[in-house]
Simulated scan of single mutants.
Amino acid sequence: MLELSKNRSMANSELEIARVLWGLGKATVRQVVEALPDHRKRDFTTVQTYLARLEEKGYVKSEITGRVKTFTSRVRPASVIRDVTNDFVERLFGGDSFPLLQHLIRQGDVSAEKIRQLRAMLDELEQPSEPTTDD
């Protein structure tokens, strides 16, 4: 089982670095720095610090081959999204996600296509699951 730090929440800057690493798969600090968007500051030492923090928290692991240290993610993006979203909903809405859904739908720029997809998802959730048979 993956062991994460008790202080496992990610700061926005750490999340940005993690997203770059997810895109790269495996990377050195320099490769992460170079992959950052142009509008972001590309400071080697800062990126190195963020990667070290992510490693401390259990999100990232490193491997040294010769003189080269590479980093890879230890968690899938979906699990981070789940954790961050759950934390956000708990802090802002007391754990009730429905007010967040209402806000996103009412305040967001939701296209007709997105509404169709949402309707299909809701219809799917309302359908009773079919019992499976063992043949």
Results as ranks from 00 to 15, higher is better:
9 S>L: 15
20 V>F: 03
78 A>N: 11
85 T>L: 08
25 G>K: 02
28 T>P: 03
77 P>A: 14
22 W>M: 12
71 F>D: 10
47 V>T: 03
48 Q>E: 15
110 V>S: 12
105 I>S: 15
19 R>P: 01
126 E>S: 13
20 V>T: 10
12 N>V: 14
42 R>E: 13
36 L>G: 03
76 R>Q: 13
42 R>Q: 14
83 D>Y: 05
108 G>K: 00
55 E>H: 02
22 W>L: 11
100 L>H: 07
28 T>Y: 06
75 V>S: 08
45 T>S: 08
43 D>C: 08
119 R>K: 15
30 R>C: 09
81 I>L: 10
20 V>D: 05
96 D>E: 08
47 V>Y: 00
54 L>S: 00
111 S>M: 09
25 G>N: 04
8 R>W: 09
27 A>V: 06
102 Q>R: 07
50 Y>F: 04
114 K>P: 02
63 E>N: 11
58 G>L: 02
69 K>Q: 07
124 E>Q: 09
23 G>L: 04
37 P>S: 13
109 D>F: 06
100 L>K: 03
34 E>W: 00
78 A>C: 12
106 R>P: 07
67 R>D: 15
80 V>F: 04
129 S>E: 14
98 F>S: 13
98 F>E: 15
99 P>G: 12
105 I>M: 13
121 M>A: 13
129 S>R: 08
107 Q>R: 11
130 E>F: 07
42 R>M: 14
88 F>D: 11
79 S>G: 07
119 R>V: 15
57 K>F: 01
68 V>A: 09
35 A>W: 00
77 P>K: 10
72 T>D: 06
19 R>W: 05
74 R>H: 05
66 G>W: 01
104 L>R: 06
73 S>K: 03
8 R>C: 08
124 E>T: 11
30 R>N: 12
76 R>M: 14
90 E>V: 03
47 V>G: 00
35 A>D: 03
93 F>C: 14
38 D>R: 07
95 G>D: 05
19 R>G: 08
87 D>Y: 07
81 I>W: 02
94 G>Q: 12
120 A>I: 11
50 Y>L: 05
93 F>T: 09
26 K>P: 00
110 V>E: 14
10 M>Q: 08
113 E>Y: 13
114 K>V: 12
44 F>T: 12
108 G>S: 04
46 T>K: 03
17 I>Q: 01
90 E>Y: 04
23 G>M: 03
55 E>G: 02
88 F>G: 06
24 L>C: 05
8 R>A: 11
80 V>P: 01
79 S>I: 06
32 V>C: 02
69 K>R: 05
125 L>E: 14
96 D>L: 02
41 K>L: 13
38 D>N: 11
91 R>H: 03
87 D>Q: 14
77 P>G: 11
51 L>G: 00
86 N>D: 13
97 S>N: 10
91 R>T: 07
96 D>P: 00
38 D>C: 09
35 A>Y: 00
17 I>N: 01
10 M>V: 10
37 P>G: 10
36 L>K: 04
48 Q>N: 15
9 S>G: 13
43 D>Q: 12
20 V>Q: 04
20 V>L: 10
54 L>H: 00
51 L>C: 01
11 A>P: 01
48 Q>D: 14
108 G>M: 02
67 R>E: 15
